[in-house]
């Protein structure tokens, strides 16, 4: 299964007043199904822009973004919403869970948009939150909140999991637990799920199947990690 994700010469230009700024400047790469990908780069490299484009949250200035054979740049607003609902799970640095809903409800919410979501309690058990199901987000620690966010993303059973600095706000121990969950998701579904993590933490790259380095909106390198380390092998 090659070319599950295929970007060709993607440009994203922001205009701030008179000045034009290329957040992405001709980015091309391909990712096959089932890979655990880490996109590395310093701030301002265009990592988040890339992730937003992959997630159908932002459009490109030029170039093509083909996901599973479909050029998502041709989608209208509603098709993009469906694309996000059915195919993509998002995990943010600051969790973005809904503060007025309980843990269980934050996961349940996907039932409103996905036809066949996974069972909520099953997933909460998987991320170790079944005891906290009826708590509100502000009663949870940061790591627990991030796990809610992962549970919500996984509940949709998405083909792609997009994670923007998922461990950025967490201590290293909690960060490891979160990464384990993400890896687990990648391996589930007969290894057909793709996980893309955007980070500036180079250590995470050691566990990745593929590492893409971005700098100034361009791809610096795109390497395959022949022997990715187990998470517990990495010194954090």
């Amino acid at each position: 299964m090659k070319d599950f994700i295929k970007l060709s010469n993607v440009k994203k230009t922001y205009k701030v007043g008179e000045i034009e700024f290329n957040a992405l400047d001709g980015v091309s790469f391909e990712i096959p199904k089932g890979e655990f990908v880490v996109i590395l780069g310093p701030s301002g490299a265009g990592k988040s822009t890339l992730l937003n484009i992959l997630g159908g949250m932002d459009d490109v200035t030029s170039g093509n973004v083909v996901i599973d054979g479909e050029n998502i740049e041709n989608y209208d607003k509603n098709e993009l919403a469906s694309y996000r609902a059915e195919n993509v799970g998002f995990i943010f640095q600051f969790y973005n869970i809904l503060p007025t809903l309980t843990v269980r409800e934050n996961v349940d919410i996907v039932k409103d948009i996905v036809k066949k979501p996974k069972g909520t309690m099953e997933i909460l058990k998987g991320v170790g939150l079944s005891k906290h199901a009826d708590k509100f987000p502000n009663q949870l620690s940061g790591g627990e909140q991030q796990r809610v966010s992962i549970a919500r993303a996984i509940a949709k059973n998405p083909k792609i999991l997009l994670c923007d600095e998922p461990t950025g706000a967490l201590d290293s121990k909690t960060g490891v637990e979160v990464l384990k969950l993400l890896k687990k998701q990648c391996d589930a579904n007969n290894g057909e799920n793709t996980v893309i993590i955007v980070t500036h933490n180079a250590q995470i790259a050691e566990i990745a199947d593929r590492v893409i380095r971005l700098k100034n909106g361009k791809i610096e390198s795109n390497t395959i990690n022949k022997h990715p380390k187990e998470i517990d092998e990495v010194v954090w």
């Binding site: 997630g55 607003k77 469906s82 996000r84 059915e86 973005n96 809904l98 503060p99 948009i113 949709k156």
Partner: peptide, 16 residues
């Protein structure tokens, strides 16, 4: 605003 944005990211349609 930000909660709506989150719902949007999750895949909720504008009308919903």
């Amino acid at each position: 605003n930000y909660q709506f944005a989150t719902l949007k990211v999750l895949g909720f349609k504008d009308r919903q």
